[in-house]
Amino acid sequence: MSEGRYVVDIGGAKRRVAVAARGARWELVLDGETHLVEQAVLERDEVVHLLVDGRSYLVDLVEKDWKRGRFVINFFADQIEVRVRDELEAVAEEITGGRGGEESFELRAPMPGIVVRALAAPGETVARGQGLLVLEAMKMQNELASELDGVVQEILVEDGQMVDGGTVLARVARSEPPAGT
């Protein structure tokens, strides 16, 4: 139960890492190199302090999407996006070329802004990467795209509406939506 193998996408690179519990500490094998990590949780799933081979790091988990294994990690002035996948999942994804197993996609506003217009209507078939709607934030128009090949289930906002960051804007289902919804 306390061992896992992962593929980590970070800064355009793919790294393989194995995690195993060693008493109160963790052993991380990263590209064949072993590191001993002691982890103290200052705020659960928010702030951790790591002693990696005795070096001290205070880290903030700014954004977390546990289902997709996506994180934005903050280390002092710098931030970086990280994606962690189970090794088996990653292999499966590489074979299918898509997001293995995901049945639906929720488009969320990445930042507060104003909805300019929807680019797709409910019932419309969309491809992965196709724009679903345009969000204006800080005087810039951003096209937000579907991450899934599928059918638009609903557009939950109206043109001109102000939305907070994280608001669900639209839903896309991999298959046809069930009748009656």
Binding site: I10, L50, K64, V82, G166
Partner: peptide, 28 residues
């Protein structure tokens, strides 16, 4: 540092509480 933190967080989050992983799906 980010890789170590993310891998450890993901590893611990998933184990022993499988239901928690899908929960709230990114909504901080």
């Amino acid at each position: 540092v980010a890789l170590v933190a993310a891998a450890l967080a993901y590893h611990q989050h998933g184990r022993g509480a499988p239901a928690a992983r899908g929960e709230a799906d990114g909504a901080t």
